[in-house]
Design a protein around this nucleic acid. Structure first.
Lengths: 115, 115
DNA sequence: TGCTTATATAAGCATATGATTATATAATGA
DNA sequence: TCATTATATAATCATATGCTTATATAAGCA
């Protein structure tokens, strides 16, 4: 017995199912270190815009990510205040950094900055 | 950057997808503290024997669990030597103990012992 | 040997999932 | 205002998933 907060099984399996898709899992890992907008994900994953939006919607529906419109773009970021974020975080910690994808974007001049 | 071993994204999402089913996730948590045979799981989950066997097969196919026949019964246990067991373990640590199901089994005299 | 219990596996089926295509909405800028 | 760019959403579809039913296999026991 320890003092850690546990998460109920139904909730846990729901979260794991969402992370059990390689695209969404990679999105979450990426978002841990960088905010990204939809068109950046489209580039990174070489996937259609609706496909990307639908993955992001699933992550947003259970509030794992937050969205914020800035001009034309909608930026997504990790919701660190999520009740289950500590759980999510320990999972993501085991995954390799995805900085390469971001670096590629930058190299191609496709990284979106809107400050 | 830390010294932790990471697990590639494809492998990670495959494992998370498997754990993203409440039955299999609960099986894994149970198996962490108790070996169980198929008929015990049938009782615990109130689920058909083929359904249980099929979940166990998926867990066994990627070697998250080991099986061992003892007489009529086939006992399943966690494969702690699995390359990715540390990853699995950190996930399971966040989940509530499932001792109650085992206790119920024992109360009903349905716990299988074959020594 | 034949019956019972435990388990595995195959086939079938309903639902879930993740993509595509088409279209709507929202912001920007000429 | 109109065209362009970014995004969301709806409809559709192929495939994956998880269950059921039916059946096969394996061990124990009378």
């Amino acid at each position: 017995m320890n003092t850690e907060v546990t998460i109920d099984m139904q909730r846990a399996s729901q979260l794991l199912k969402l992370l059990g898709d390689q695209t969404r899992l990679t999105m979450m890992k990426l978002l841990q270190s960088h905010e990204c907008c939809v068109c950046e994900f489209v580039e990174i994953f070489k996937m259609s815009q609706p496909a990307i939006s639908q993955h992001l919607r699933k992550l947003r529906d259970i509030e794992l990510v937050k969205e914020e419109r800035r001009g034309q773009w909608v930026f997504f970021s990790i919701n660190e205040s999520h009740e289950d974020y500590p759980f999510i975080q320990t999972i993501l910690e085991h995954l390799p950094e995805q900085n390469e994808s971001i670096a590629e974007l930058e190299a191609q001049g496709l990284r979106v900055c809107c400050q």
